[in-house]
Amino acid sequence: MNSLSNSDLILNIEDLHMTFDAELFKTVSLKDRFVRTLTLQGKQVSALHVLKGLNLKLEQGDKIGILGVNGSGKTTLCRLIAGILVPTSGSIALNGECRSIFNTTIGVIPELTGRENAALLVKFIFPRESLAVQAQLLEDALDFSELNEFLDIPFQNYSKGMQARICLSVISAKECDLLILDEVFDGADLFFQEKMRIRISDIIERSGATILVSHSLDQIRSVCNKVLVLDAGKIQFFGDVEKGIKAYRFLDNGLASFRGEL
């Protein structure tokens, strides 16, 4: 991953391709592999081309909602930007720090208490902050979660809603240059969802740029100022929110008819 010189440009993706071998999902044990070798079954190369030549620029203040059917490459794209995956070819240049979250009901060590898990999450989500700032972020997140006396019971005994409260409170404790939220709004109860929506909106406003993956069109409308529609590994639309949502709805009927409407 490279860095950028233009200070307004947060992310620059050029000709991004991501391919992996479909065989990965076939051999599940060494025993299988051994039998296949013995029976001279050669390796069949069947590449899955998940992302096909993507180009994308994000600037300061961009709030992008990514829409696409399951398997269109949304999460793969987010993982590539977050630096978890390495592209097969092409380049991803990032200006600043990227923070990404893909699930909000997960404990680092579920046997430990909510408080201890929150402390570990702070270490993993804000590793670059000083110990004093990490302690402050933890205190703020625990206060915001309003779990009070429940903080000292094991995380594994929490309901999904309580687990989401811990994770979301930590995630939303501090802004960053590029924030990636992949279907993370679900889980918390209604009252807390509203409280969290306000806090996350505030963090998004203060962050450089945001990428939000969600199937909720209302969330996309309320948070984003641009929409990117992915289909079969290609960007089918990038721009205005309402037009993007329309393009997404046309995926079933074929984008050609949508382009006709435009």
Partner: peptide
Amino acid sequence: MANKLEFRQFWQQVMALTSANMRSR
């Protein structure tokens, strides 16, 4: 690479998790 951790930050994560593992165990 903007997302790569410095050794000190990486080490702090390892130590925090080691200590948490021991408390859990």
